[in-house]
Design a protein around this nucleic acid. Sequence first.
RNA 1: GGGGGAAUGCCCGAGUGGUUAAUGGGGACGGGCUGUAAACCCGUUGGCUUUGCCUACGUAGGUUCGAAUCCUACUUCCCCCA
Length: 397
Amino acid sequence: MTEVSSLDSILAGTVTCHTQEDLARKLKEGRPLRVKLGVDPSSPDLHVGHSVQLRYLRRLQDLGHLAVLIVGDATAMVGDPTGKNATRPQLTRDEVDAHAETYLAQAGLILDMKQVEVVRNSSWFDHMGFMDAVRLCGSMTVARMLERDTFSERHKAGVPISMHEFLYPLMQARDSVEVRADIEIGGTDQTFNLLVGRELMRDAEQAPQVCITLPLLPGLDGVQKMSKSLGNAIGLTDPPRDLFGKAMSVPDALMPDYFRLATDLSEEEILKWLEGSPREAKGALALALTRLYHGEAAAKSASEEFDRIFRDKGLPDEIEESSLPPEMLVDGQGVWLVKALQRVGLVSSASEARRLIKGGGVRVDDQRVSDEQQHLAGGGTYVIQVGKRKFHRVVVP
RNA sequence: GGGGGAAUGCCCGAGUGGUUAAUGGGGACGGGCUGUAAACCCGUUGGCUUUGCCUACGUAGGUUCGAAUCCUACUUCCCCCA
């Protein structure tokens, strides 16, 4: 690799880099750089927001560098306070273990797993004593912690901040020392945490890591950053149908971000789509995104199915089917629709089913139901539908 | 350690003894319009065997014909002082 082209290609698509001088110096050494990305196994699935960072990391791998993935199983038990207005629930070791496993499998969808070093940060934190932690705290001042908007806002608003939350940036920084990171990447909201790493590395007489921040992808609500807990995320392992459908519901204004950050379309293609009909562009976006994780064929059929269900108001390819047990039959009337809806999980309570029927949101074999007392006659098979996209086929004994 | 304040439905937040699952907003869901976008309009938003019943206003008791509202204890949080 030539150092000049590498510098440019490393900086492409990034938001900030602290510092370019350090990066240039490291590149000059001509060795593969250790690029650290910490993942917080606080939920079992990766989403398209994570893919921005993973895809960037993959690019660096392709340039010959090594990805160092830190599974933050120790830090997950603390919880990153970034962007949170409340203390996070602490996870148990078992939960974290389970999440770490699925994370790695999912990261493999994007990264070249042959060029990855995976470490759990519990492997050093578990062995640190209390006095080590005290020493770690000594490298940070309260004033600097309180400077952080996330803390100062909470503090001003009277929202409690637990002591251990101050530990998070220090732990993340400590990880950098342990793995001797050359570069650490993260979303722009991670700037502070990344920079603390530089300080701890200097204290440990290591060359400070280069901190690279990447754009954050807004979630489907178009407001907050994509996050599973906010319910605005597109999961990497979502089935093609869901992935495609969620992509279609991205607000128009966010299409450029999604195109550029989450798909592999070229800038020319993207501009071409953005200049045309928004509906067409959205379809191209959804197709490109789905293709990335499920392949061409699955993406195509998801696209066709989407048109069929929502444009032509048809039925999906596959509809989940269940048979109702005979004890649900009410003498001579069949099965009460409300109970059937509840039974197959289309609604969570009978009251909800009644409400939906009242509101005109329930269909049986494409006929809107208006009578709460509607029963499904015995010996038949029916497609029941709630809203526009929930279908279930029930077999009534 | 001392003093003051607060805890209400998914979230924020009214309500301070007597029609009421509890004003309003946000979110979510359903309907209309549509491109499962945005905007807009309407409806719903504790549960059930639903013209009625049950459970709910931090927890546990108490006063009362009657409490989210009053009293006691407990728990948690916030603020001020030290």
